[in-house]
Write a protein that binds this DNA or RNA. Structure first.
Length: 205
DNA sequence: GCAATGATGCACT
DNA sequence: GTGCATCATTGCG
């Protein structure tokens, strides 16, 4: 096993593709966080796509604001925001500069640094509960808005590495969750992707 | 096991 | 002031 200094890091071109392609391709890849001299890593098992100004579930559909600015920028940049006053959400910007789109990382399978993740999560958490939701994984990985606008292609602080590739049968799709405010058509599209039968996929409400 | 609820910060009419 | 791309806790059984 090589240390993480190899060039497995996913580059800008990985994210400069159609958002659905990226959302699907991110399944099975490694999310890596370097924090206080320690390495935390997880395998991505669930994602959601938010695509463009016409997607009423996408934050950018109301236009370009201070909050959504990074979504309009370069692919391969982290879009991190706070929701419900409590939870951070990690997205990676996709497509071309000027077109607002991103992939939300919804769940990972903890691979390295589980003890540190556990310290950041409530004491009663099971292994599954460390990272089986978008807010939970951000807390476990120490990800907050300070990383908003961070380039994840540099291999520092926060980045993604190539993992295993998955066959089609391992991937499931369905509607996105938590977007009751969006237009019915946008609520129906199956822009959520997950690894079938994986225990770290977030519980659906 | 499940449903209901409160927490909490910030962007934006 | 309103409403979130959620989660932990409580109260049930």
């Amino acid at each position: 096993m090589f240390p993480s200094a190899t060039n497995n890091i996913l580059g800008r071109e990985f994210f400069a593709r159609p958002t659905l392609t990226v959302a699907r391709a991110l399944l099975g890849q490694r999310l890596v966080r370097q924090l206080n001299g320690e390495l935390l890593a997880g395998r991505i098992v669930e994602t959601e796509a938010y695509i463009g100004p016409d997607d009423t579930a996408c934050h950018a559909h109301k236009g370009r604001t201070a909050r959504t600015e990074v979504m309009f920028g370069s692919p391969g940049v982290a879009y991190v925001y706070l929701i419900y006053g409590i939870h951070s959400m990690l997205n990676i910007v996709t497509e071309q500069v000027g077109f607002p789109a991103a992939v939300l990382i919804r769940a990972v399978d903890p691979l390295e640094g589980q003890e540190t993740m556990r310290q950041r999560r409530p004491p009663a958490s099971t292994l599954r509960q460390l990272t089986n939701g978008p807010g939970k994984l951000c807390q476990a990985f120490g990800i907050d808005r300070r990383l908003n606008g961070w380039e994840v292609t540099k291999g520092q602080q926060l980045w993604l590495e190539a993992g295993q590739s998955l066959s089609e049968v391992e991937v499931a799709t369905g509607p996105r969750v938590g977007i009751t405010y969006a237009d019915p058509a946008d609520r129906q599209v199956t822009w959520r992707f997950w690894i079938q039968d994986n225990e770290f996929v977030s519980p659906t409400r």
